[in-house]
């Protein structure tokens, strides 16, 4: 999928622009959000330089840490978040199904139970 290029200077690794090919708002906006939550980040923003080019530039300026490491952490955090949503989602689906089945059973047997909904 995506391939990335870092644009920055070797003297100052705290400020870099990362250019991602074949990505769009989907990834860039959520990355920007998670990066802006990180106190090490002084500035973070993204842009799509041209709408017909499949490229997005993410600018990161940090308070001292290398921008690359901060971006790596942000990616990791987002991965964990995805994992978490996946887990909670499957749990919620299972719970919902169990609750529904219980509701049906109690309706059939005539037992009045407080609604699980």
């Amino acid at each position: 999928m995506a391939s990335m290029m870092e644009l920055g200077s070797e003297e100052d690794p705290c400020a870099s622009t990362f250019s991602l090919v074949d990505e769009d708002h989907t990834l860039a906006n959520s990355l920007r959000y998670i990066l802006n939550r990180d106190p090490r980040v002084e500035f973070c923003g993204y842009s799509i330089p041209h709408p017909s080019e499949n490229r997005v530039n993410i600018r990161i300026q940090t308070t001292g840490d290398p921008a690359k490491d901060v971006l790596k952490d942000a990616l990791q955090d987002l991965m964990v978040m995805c994992q978490h949503i996946r887990k909670t989602f499957t749990n919620a689906v299972d719970q919902h199904k169990v609750a529904k089945r219980q509701g049906e059973v109690s309706m059939k047997s005539g037992i009045t139970e407080p609604s699980t909904e």
Partner: peptide, 14 residues
């Protein structure tokens, strides 16, 4: 799953 794959792809390309 796909969003995770995208994030992984960026991390690997780094």
């Amino acid at each position: 799953e796909i969003l995770k794959m995208k994030l992984d792809a960026v991390r690997l390309s780094m």
